[in-house]
């Protein structure tokens, strides 16, 4: 089972390739949802790596929600925004998150703008 195997892979590159095989298997099994979700996972991993390399943000392995949370917390609003659009996060959940992070940083002026 490739998904399980992927978590055993320590290195990201090999992990991505194992996940790719998982996608292939899911497609063969006509399990559309899982195939898509796994592709999403790979996309997230790549995104996290890119940001980690650039900013040293330490995102790898976090869930999508946690990633966005971390981005907002460190003021990388644009990147968070990008994830929100790329992954088609429902508005409700994103606004919850955004409100929370603004409140935590006590940026009340930003909050007012909503």
């Amino acid at each position: 089972y490739y998904v399980t195997a992927s978590y055993r892979e320590k290195r990201l590159d090999s992990r991505l390739s194992v996940l790719q095989s998982a996608v292939d298997e899911y497609n063969k099994a006509k399990n559309e949802f899982s195939a898509k979700a796994t592709e999403e996972e790979m996309r997230l991993l790549r995104f996290q790596r890119k940001l980690d390399d650039e900013k040293g943000a330490g995102l790898l392995g976090l869930s999508l929600q946690a990633t966005m949370e971390a981005l907002l917390a460190s003021g990388l609003n644009k990147q968070a925004e990008q994830l929100y659009r790329d992954f088609r996060v429902p508005d409700k959940r994103y606004w919850w998150l955004k409100l929370k992070s603004l409140a935590e940083k006590e940026e009340w002026e930003e909050l007012e703008k909503f």
């Binding site: 998904v3 399980t4 978590y7 949802f33 899982s34 979700a37 796994t38 999403e40 996972e41 997230l44 976090l62 869930s63 999508l64 929600q65 946690a66 992954f87 996060v89 429902p90 959940r93």
Partner: peptide, 17 residues
Amino acid sequence: DYYKREILQTYGYEHML
């Protein structure tokens, strides 16, 4: 599918299993 997506995105893809 909606629930599953929400759960995976929020809690992490490892919960697929």
